[in-house]
Each structure stands twice: as C-alpha cells, then as structure tokens.
C-alpha cells in the first residue's frame, strides 16, 4: 500500500502474522468440503485483498492447483486482486436506484474522487464500486460504505459524507 495511508496508533499486524492467521483458517476449513469461497472471504477480510502470492499460499495449503483458486477469485465480483481503500463505496445501480437517479451519484463520486469505477484513490482511502441492488430499494437511491447503508443519497451531500470519513 502507498506510504500515504494514515497509520493508526496501535501496532499493525505484520505481513507474516497475517499469513499465519490465514494459514490457521485454512487449516480449520481444510477438511470441510467446498469451503474455498469461505476461506477466501476470511482471507480478504484479513489481508484486504487477494494478491496472486496469497492465492498461491492458500492453494498450496489446500493442495489445490493455483488455477482453481484463481478461477474462483476472478469469477466473483466480491473478491479483489488489487489493494482496496480503507472505505469501499458501493453505489447501488439496481432498478429502483437507477430509476431514481443512482447514476448521478456515480458520476458525482467519480468527479469528487477523481477515480473511475473499480479504482482506489491514491491516498488509499476510498475504492469506488458499482453494485446491482443492495436490497435497499425502499431507500433509493442508496449506496454502501463498507457495511453501512446510506439512504436517499443526494449527490450534493456526497462531499460532506466523504469529508466526515476522512
């Protein structure tokens, strides 16, 4: 990650410790059939994203070819092989949000953040993504920042929402 990332005061887990933690999870799931996706969820939760080296590590531990792990990672949109920002902004473009102007939110966010869809800001703060329905249709247009749903988003208020997170 870039050196501009704001460091928090508490001690950060080292690379090795993260790998060890992921290794323990793989061991735990190893004998349960069909748990690759669950392992990848956990690994992404710990490491932030799934670079090829980490995929290789998981594949080796599971005794599977890397191609199988990579095939799953690339199939599902939730998995990312690029570093992500501290906050992932997912703008809903499901039908209800689309009809109520979700596209304007995407355009405005691209303008404010200066990045395209799927990209991360240089300071490592925000990743911008588009989602097909987050199931908050009654609150359209909606978006999610990490696990929090923002309802009836007004494009003019995006700036202040983002400032609040910085």
């Amino acid at each position: 990650m870039s050196s501009q990332v704001k460091q928090c005061k508490c001690r950060k887990e080292t690379e090795q410790e993260k790998y060890e933690r992921i290794g323990r999870i793989v061991d735990e799931y190893k004998d349960r059939e069909g748990s690759l996706i669950q392992i990848l969820h956990a690994a992404q939760g710990i490491y932030g994203y799934l670079p090829v080296e980490l995929q290789k590590f998981i594949a080796d531990k599971l005794g599977k070819p890397l191609s199988e792990v990579y095939g799953v990672v690339s199939f599902y949109s939730f998995f990312s092989t690029k570093p992500r920002g501290k906050y992932t902004i997912r703008v809903c473009l499901g039908t209800a949000c689309y009809v109520r102007g979700g596209k304007k939110i995407v355009e405005k966010l691209q303008e404010i953040l200066g990045i395209g869809i799927g990209d991360t800001t240089d300071d490592g703060m925000f990743t911008l993504e588009v989602m097909r329905c987050i199931g908050a249709c009654g609150l359209a247009p909606a978006m999610m920042i990490n696990d929090t749903v923002y309802k009836q988003v007004n494009p003019d208020k995006l700036q202040s929402i983002l400032e609040g997170l910085r």
Binding site: E33, G34, S35, L36, I37, Q38, L40, H41, E68, G71, V72, F75, Y76, S77, F78, F79, M131, R132
Partner: peptide, 24 residues
C-alpha cells in the same frame, strides 16, 4: 454459505456449484 457477488448464482445449478466452493 456466503455468496460472493455473482448474480448467476441465483440459478439453482449455479448456486449448488457455488456452495461446493467452485466458480458458480
């Protein structure tokens, strides 16, 4: 079993393939 953002996994045979931990 948690999905991972693939719409096609709502289709029954794809869903089961995904539960098996594979490409859905």
């Amino acid at each position: 079993r948690l999905g991972a953002g693939a719409f096609v996994c709502g289709e029954e045979t794809a869903l089961m393939t995904s539960i098996e931990g594979k490409r859905g």
